[in-house]
Write a protein that binds this DNA or RNA. Structure first.
Lengths: 216, 216
DNA sequence: CCGATATTACAACAGTTGTTATGATCGGTC
DNA sequence: GACCGATCATAACAACTGTTGTAATATCGG
């Protein structure tokens, strides 16, 4: 079926490539000067062209910023999916956790832009839902790895995967945010220590010990 | 000594009270519509007056927003200092942790405004330093409570207080941010579960005994 | 090379922003 | 009553915002 009625836009390869180019320029401006300073004229200046290019490729500025926000969350998700899967369950969990954190310049920039969009989304429920859904996906990913972890007998059978996934995810989110605030305390090499310490406390049985170890 | 040379402003009681009134109005606008929408006219409208009042009590808008940002961090610090100190070391630690989190409408509003200022501070080193120093104070507070905890023999002697304080603080920051994103997953009643689970895992000794925080 | 279409530059627009100057009002003090 | 300073309303200002329309240019199939 040919897209005669789709009514949108030319949608050629060049067109989409140009859109991606504009979005990339917008993200650079946002990362460098903030979301408030990312005006159509500033983005056009970053592109080296005039505002006519933007108005030609996007219906309005909200369209552009919404797609730019989407691109950020997709970039972070791409990093997680590209995490190393060669190691065992515990190593995979650590790799995914570290892939989520801002441990290099590129991911640090992504976190900066993400924080700008997060603040802007506080007054836009539809944008906040995107953040919520993206976080849900990461938590489910962590949950699956935790189940693999438990199937190897390394995880206490009394631990709730949903709870542990939300627990670890909150820690990762906090580490990422604190890395933007206090990079001297939460540096990239400290992430390994935090994550490994957290995972190490999952394999141990806990003091209240509600009749553990006798079931299986 | 009378302050003839010191202050550059009247600094009377009424003057300061009026300034606080304006700052409160500004925080209400920021919480309701975001930092970008907190214009001088919007704040004056929230106050029920004109912009002349603002220009009379503040040198410019940056002055007003900077003091408003200060007020937010001080409000959060006030909540922590007002935490219950009647219980034992473990209970005090849990109380401080829960006092830091957004578990009611007021603290939730404070976190929303805090996130707006945090995003704005990403490109203002002097403002970001204020966030960093405020977090350092909270971490030191947690560290002291952890030392009390250990003096009671409840904390493993192999645990590093600095590391554990940074660890717990990152968890709290993540819980607070995630509560703004996914309130259905990170509700106020879940904070108790997360914090108590985290503290419970401190009293047990761990097999691998992870290395201390980055020794430079 | 031509013509159609996609792409871009440019200018103008109506609103909004922070800042500033000016004048009015009110409450005190010689 | 004359005077002064604090407080505030009002208006104007230039700079900046997103949007839109129009003309110029580039690109590419024929």
């Amino acid at each position: 079926m040919v897209d005669i009625l789709s009514t949108d836009r030319p949608s050629t390869d060049r067109f989409e490539a140009r859109r991606a180019e504009i979005i990339a320029a917008a993200l650079r401006v946002i990362e460098r000067e903030g979301l408030q300073a990312a005006t159509v004229r500033a983005i056009a200046h970053e592109m080296g062209c005039t505002t006519g290019v933007l108005s030609h490729h996007f219906r309005n500025k909200d369209d552009l910023t919404a797609l730019a926000g989407n691109e950020v969350t997709r970039a972070i998700a791409r990093r997680i999916n590209a995490a190393d899967r060669s190691g065992g369950p515990g190593q995979q969990l650590a790799d995914v956790a570290l892939a989520f954190l801002p441990d290099d310049a590129e991911s640090h920039r992504a976190w900066v832009v993400w924080l700008h969009f997060l603040a802007a989304a506080l007054r836009q429920p539809e944008h906040m839902q995107r953040h919520s859904l993206a976080n849900d996906a990461v938590r489910r990913h962590i949950r699956e790895l935790l189940l693999d972890f438990r199937s190897e007998g390394l995880l206490g059978p009394d631990l709730d995967p949903d709870f542990e996934a939300a627990y670890l995810f909150a820690l990762l989110d906090g580490l990422g945010v604190d890395a933007l605030i206090s990079p001297e305390t939460y540096g990239p090499h400290s992430f390994v220590t935090f994550v490994s310490a957290h995972l190490a406390r999952l394999v141990v049985t806990h003091p209240p010990a509600p009749g553990a170890l006798d079931g299986h």
